[in-house]
Write a protein that binds this DNA or RNA. Structure first.
Lengths: 235, 235
DNA sequence: GACGGTCAAATTGTATACGATTAATTGCAC
DNA sequence: GTGCAATTAATCGTATACAATTTGACCGTC
């Protein structure tokens, strides 16, 4: 759907920096790049065969999305969200997603529901598969559920906001997630769709809030300071 | 409060591009720059005595906030939100602001209330004054009310989102606003504070929604398509 | 005189170059 | 051998330079 949105606006293809940005973002969201990894401008540039100018632009863009943090005169790193940031991310999701759900439910079409069910199926299929590739695809699919709702809501601004929140959630889960299993309770997605379909709006919102709480509950957000040397050895 | 937030993070002062970005943003929000105005990279660079590199970075940053639109190979322009975009902006505000209000109410301190009351006083004072300078200050103060609530909510992510929404709202009002008077019904701000103070949370939310609806109602969002050539001449 | 195409001016897209800041390594003194 | 200081290497911050694209003008032709 992203390519479609890009196609219709034609020259929104813009500059090559966008492609690099998207590539790096995907790598971060799919957790091929770990939080804290240094992203040197030269390295990024060489990797994509462009100058530092474009690499820098891409990194700047990612910093606006909160996926990388650039420190003055030090460089860019894959963001390493603090426990507090993590809480804020999920707090923001609890704030926004019920509203998105209501908007989406008001505009959803049978075709949309069909596509969402297909996405769910794909998600389930990936869940049962083995291997890193499947795991990464699953991570993406699980986020796509929430993004698709945002897309259906028809509000591009809120949609972009959700894209940021979902991406950053992935980082948080990578850092603080405990269970090895999927980031999202898969069945909960299906329940939400069903509730929407049967017009039980309030219940759908409740399910959504529970779903988010469920994800957050799987995190271990204890403040393990970046280098707790003392405790790391003196235990 | 912005300078305070910047001061404590110290080297978040970052690059000179940030300053340029802020300066242009202020100019847009205070409506010294009209929607559609071209922002040539060279001109911006010369104006601030920096190279095109920094000017470009600043414009890119503003485009992420939706305040300027950069068209490939054509340049950057102060954003000219379409009626549909305008509706999305206010729809997003209706979606987010009640939640912000609830969060803020849960954490607000007497000191916060005092500061907000001071802001309200300042707002009222500016409202009675004459002149462009006062008008611009009033615009800013009226937005600051909503931003302060977001700040009190303690969620930096939601806060940033609100900053974007408020800034873009200013653009929309500049374009489609009808009444010459202030962008926001001033008294409504006071009512909201009072409701929060007396712990009437639901009523505060209702007031907020009405307030937003009130702003939107003052707009003339008839589709005057940028170049409705046909209708413009064939009538 | 109107239409079409070619050319020139201006502006953006990208790359490279240079200065500044930070981090690391080496060397020296203790 | 340890700790500090100065130097070196690497990386970022910014400016400049060149290539590509667009825009408006000029000119010839119909």
């Amino acid at each position: 759907m992203k390519s479609a949105a890009r196609a219709l606006s034609e020259d929104t293809a813009e500059t090559g920096a966008q492609q690099i940005r998207d590539a790096i973002r995907d790598a971060i969201v799919e957790r091929r790049l770990s939080p804290g990894t240094k992203l040197s401008e030269s390295d990024v540039g060489n990797l994509f065969s462009v100058s530092r100018t474009l690499a820098r632009a891409a990194l700047q863009a990612l910093s606006y999305e909160g996926l990388v943090s650039v420190e003055k005169n030090r460089g860019a790193f894959v963001a390493y969200p603090s426990p507090d940031e993590a809480r804020q991310i999920f707090s923001a999701r609890r704030l926004v997603e019920p509203g998105i759900l209501r908007e989406a439910a008001a505009r959803i079409t049978p075709a949309d529901i069909k596509r969402m069910r297909e996405l769910l199926l794909e998600e389930g299929r990936l869940m049962s598969e083995r291997g890193q590739t499947a795991r990464r695809a699953e991570i993406k699919a699980s986020g796509d559920f929430h993004l698709m709702l945002a897309a259906i809501s028809g509000n591009a601004i809120v949609q972009r906001f959700m894209e940021e929140l979902v991406a950053r959630s992935s980082l948080v889960i990578a850092l603080y997630g405990q269970s090895t299993v999927s980031s999202c309770g898969h069945s909960e997605h299906g329940d939400i769709i069903s509730a929407i379909e049967s017009n039980e709006l309030d219940r759908a919102c409740q399910l959504m809030l529970h779903h988010i709480a469920h994800i957050e509950a799987d995190l271990d957000l204890r403040e393990r300071k970046s280098l707790g040397l003392r405790e790391a050895f003196e235990l």
